[in-house]
Write a protein that binds this DNA or RNA. Structure first.
Lengths: 192, 192
DNA sequence: CGAAAATCGTTAGGAGCCTAACTTTCAGCT
DNA sequence: AGCTGAAAGTTAGGCTCCTAACGATTTTCG
């Protein structure tokens, strides 16, 4: 599951040396870049381990989370009239999760096989399906989420409240910059 | 290639609300956690796009980088006696890259098919192979690395020099904490 | 109304990574 | 020497994700 190849990152001095050969190499930028990918990878791996131990994959967990967010307006005193608050159909789930519809089909297949969700026909549009958490799926989340949240708290416990704020701020800047560089949706914006 | 499912992160207030149901949910920890994974994902996706545009995958690029690090003691005035400085064999490469030997076999297969590397028999141990960059592989790196470094500089250009330092420091703390949580290698250290 | 375009979910095939089992070769003991 | 165990690289099979193409249904519009 790791994204960043390189078990041990090159040391700063190595980067400086390499920068002599490649003038485009900015040592401190590269260092921050590598650490970012590396840290995220490690945190991700931790999460992966936990998920695997509970017999579920990242993709499937993501789907369950989305369904849970969709079908959970019951904490307050909101009447459960219809609750059309989140993604329900495979296409919506795929969009929210950032995967293709084809991938979502596979994820739902497995989740349905394991009894965590069910597919129901949409009465108003026969092309569509509605995906719903089963009791078993809800029970799984009720059991697993506290464990998950404890791990998140444990890992991020390395930072103080203000450090977390700083981190989020710095990451936000990087995200913005990355979005600028990325010709994600409309590439015909600035640089032709 | 994205790791983090969830296109749009839940807002802070949603986290706070969910924390009412799950006392283990630490809103600011979860926020930092999500931003970390999300930012790394975006940066990674950017890199992926660039790599794909040049017809190479992450795994293969990682191998090339490792080989390049291995076979590059020639910048200084180090005699090129033998240069036993980095990973050369598939097993060493797998270890350095953090993948299994089986995976490395596949990566080298493709790299060799594309003419970027060659496998040579180790004269002293007939079990081993030595993997070497070809001229074509070196040319590829010479052409691609400047582009890559420019992108890294571009993305991390969002941060000032001191902000980069802060980021690296905070990420380091998280890494340490993650390492504590992870029963990676020796699980029989503290918590039995 | 009825053909064209769009949207839904699915299938087929590929890439990258994994684990588990194998063959070949080397190293250590008795 | 000869056997046992370890290590190198590979193969086989599985998982998750992708893109591309498909039939089924709905919407759009001449």
């Amino acid at each position: 599951m790791p994204h960043l190849m390189l078990k041990d990152l090159p040391r700063y001095e190595c980067l400086l040396e390499a920068a002599r050969e490649f003038p485009d190499l900015d040592a401190s930028a590269a260092e921050a870049y590598l650490h970012l990918l590396r840290t995220a990878d490690e945190v991700f791996a931790l999460n992966s381990t936990q998920l695997t131990a509970h017999g579920i994959s990242h993709g499937r967990f993501g789907v369950l989370m989305l369904l849970w967010r969709s079908s959970e307006p019951r904490t307050g005193d909101v009447p459960i009239t219809q609750g059309p608050c989140g993604p329900r159909t495979p296409a919506e789930l795929a969009d929210a999760a950032g995967v293709t519809r084809a991938t979502m089909t596979g994820l739902i297949d497995t989740l349905e096989r394991d009894g965590f969700v069910v597919r129901e026909a949409d009465p108003s549009d026969r092309r569509m399906l509605l995906v719903r958490l089963t009791k078993k799926g809800e029970n799984f989340l009720a059991r697993f989420l506290p464990i998950h949240f404890r791990e998140v708290r444990g890992v991020m416990g390395a930072l103080s409240e203000s450090e977390r704020k700083t981190l989020v701020r710095l990451l936000g800047k990087i995200q913005q910059q990355a979005a600028k560089h990325a010709p994600t949706s409309d590439s015909a914006s600035k640089l032709t």
